[in-house]
Simulated scan of single mutants.
Amino acid sequence: MEGLLLGSVLSALSTGFGAIPILFFKKLTHRWRDLLLAFTAGVMVSASMFGLIPQALDVSDTLVVSIGVMMGVTVLSLMEKLIPHIDLERQQQVMSEKAFLIVAALLLHNIPEGLSVGVSYAHVNSELGAAVAIGIGLQNMPEGLLVALFLSHQAMSRWKAFVIATLTGVVEIIAALIGYGMTRYVEGLVPYGLSFAAGAMMFVVYKELIPESHGDGNERVATFSFIFGLLAMIILMDIFNG
């Protein structure tokens, strides 16, 4: 439980850590944005394919894993339809009322991320939880920065934008505790939970992160960044499992 609390808190607070640059500058270049998104995509692919899915297969079979993955993809797909997707790069001139919408969207999108962390810590191989928490945390960093940048363009002070971006990560702690409790104490739910987390993460990667990192002419450097993210996560998982 201590590991779960530490991992979920650090993962959640990474949103605020990623928003720190807003205190010093207001503009993030396309190139750096694409590099961060691609690196995050690599981390999440590695965590899903070499961490979550293999662990789920160890305690179940391909049918269970397939059901879990499709559940994760379906839930994220439904959430995307219910929550308007706002291009932060293009919303600098919208009215300040939109700030509430983007913060609410981020809060809801953080729920499956927190569940992923909690489910991973509930597995017998608790080191998987630490690896997934790191992966989710890395994803949260550019997300926190982009949200803080958006809020700073809504007649909001940099410090207030930073604080709000940080607080959006708190929901992940609650979701992590719920995910941990459900899979820890409900027999047979662990492989579904692990597969669900993998499906949710892969949906984010292929639907959002990769397309967005390849849309501004930085495809080559973004590809290398993706590979570096994938390898970095493999190394981290090997360290935690070793």
Rank of each mutant, 00 (worst) to 15 (best):
V119W: 05
G135T: 09
L63N: 13
S126L: 06
V69G: 13
T74Y: 13
N140Y: 00
P112C: 06
V65N: 10
G135A: 10
L128K: 14
A99I: 05
Q154Y: 13
K98E: 11
T74H: 12
Q139E: 02
G118L: 07
K98T: 14
S126C: 05
S120E: 02
A104W: 02
K98H: 12
S60T: 01
L138Q: 00
A122L: 04
G72D: 02
T62D: 11
A130M: 12
Q92K: 09
L146D: 02
V119F: 13
A104E: 04
A161Y: 11
A155R: 10
N125E: 12
Q139W: 02
K81R: 03
V65D: 05
L146C: 13
L76I: 05
L128R: 11
G114E: 06
N110P: 03
A99C: 03
V117M: 07
L106E: 09
V75F: 15
Q139T: 01
F150A: 08
A130K: 11
G129R: 05
L78N: 03
I134D: 00
S96W: 06
H109L: 11
L82W: 08
I67N: 02
S120D: 03
N110I: 00
F162M: 14
L88Y: 10
V65K: 07
Q154H: 12
T62K: 15
V65F: 02
Q93C: 02
M95S: 05
S120Q: 05
E127R: 09
T62G: 12
Q93R: 04
L82K: 01
L78D: 10
M95R: 07
N140F: 02
T74G: 15
P142C: 07
V132M: 10
S120R: 13
M71F: 14
A122D: 01
V147C: 11
A148G: 04
I86L: 08
R90I: 06
V94S: 08
F100G: 15
L115Y: 04
Q154L: 04
V64Q: 11
Q91D: 14
N125K: 12
Q154W: 09
L115F: 08
I102W: 06
L115G: 00
L101V: 14
L149D: 12
N140L: 07
H153N: 08
V147N: 06
I136N: 00
M156K: 11
S116W: 09
V64H: 10
V64R: 12
L128I: 06
M71E: 03
A130V: 15
L63P: 08
L151E: 07
L146R: 08
S116P: 15
N110K: 00
M79K: 06
A155D: 12
G144F: 00
M70W: 12
Q139A: 13
H109F: 09
A161I: 13
